[in-house]
Design a protein around this nucleic acid. Structure first.
Lengths: 138, 138
DNA sequence: CTGACCTATGCAACGGAAGTGCATTTATTG
DNA sequence: CAATAAATGCACTTCCGTTGCATAGGTCAG
């Protein structure tokens, strides 16, 4: 518990009870999580609070946002030392068509792409879809 | 005009007046187009009709859907000979943060990625964001 | 030609999700 | 303890995708 408080403090986020719980939830879940997921888990909490908590986490580099093509924004904790905004740190995400879960493949960076003249890339998003390790093992 | 009719027929889409107009609009626009874009251009037409037309086009391989991370579904005409569903035909898309337009880079295929054991990729989506050729020239 | 039929179109409404404004509570600091 | 700032909760809006149902319009068999 204390580590979470410290982690949040280090990122400039005031460690309120709610925020610690949300952080803990994200840490245990280990897959990309939507606002609605969190809402289900914390039925008492207000959607707005959860929404703003995630936005705060994102701004302060605690989580990064993931667009996995489902049309729902998801979030996952940043790895220690993760610099989401830097192009070389962009890892890819895998969305399982079977269990509908999305995971970060932090070891797999997005390869560099040679663009046509005039195009300047600042950011990239790569999502692979298919069957994940848990589902393919069945 | 006749070519469009033929093209639609060849793809198993009945070439109604509306559909020909929509096809023409997409062809002239040359960038990924949202339902709302089309709605603006055809103020008299009903949103549902446009929506269903796009879905029909998609199913019949006339257009492919693009998720450029803006949270809005977009569509673009398939190139002749494009097999959107095949993995080797997956090209990448470029979203300009300045003019907000998304273009297909049909020449640039998504590079093959080696996934961890147990992961089976069936589909992929790569979106680069930055400044496009038109905007960087200014 | 005509009626039966299928398809396309139009209208209305729903539902999910992101987002905002404002009031209230909780925490921090002088 | 008072003053201030930050976090939380409630209500509401907007946007977009989507569906159900009724109608119009083209197609085809008899």
């Amino acid at each position: 518990m204390k580590e979470i408080e410290k982690k949040l403090n280090d990122n400039g986020v005031r460690p309120t009870a709610m925020r610690i719980l949300i952080y803990k939830y994200l840490a245990e879940k280990e897959v990309a999580t939507s606002l609605t997921d969190i809402e289900m888990a914390f039925a008492k909490a207000d959607r707005t609070t959860l929404f703003r908590t995630l936005k705060t986490f994102e701004k302060q580099g605690v989580v990064h946002q993931i667009d996995d093509g489902t049309g729902v924004q998801k979030y996952a904790l940043c790895e220690p030392g993760c610099n989401c905004e830097l192009e070389q740190d962009l890892h890819l995400h895998f969305h399982c068509n079977n269990c509908d879960e999305t995971v970060c493949l932090t070891e797999h960076k997005i390869p560099h792409i040679n663009l046509p003249e005039g195009f300047v890339a600042e950011d990239a998003n790569l999502v692979l879809k298919g069957i994940c390790d848990k589902c393919s093992g069945q």
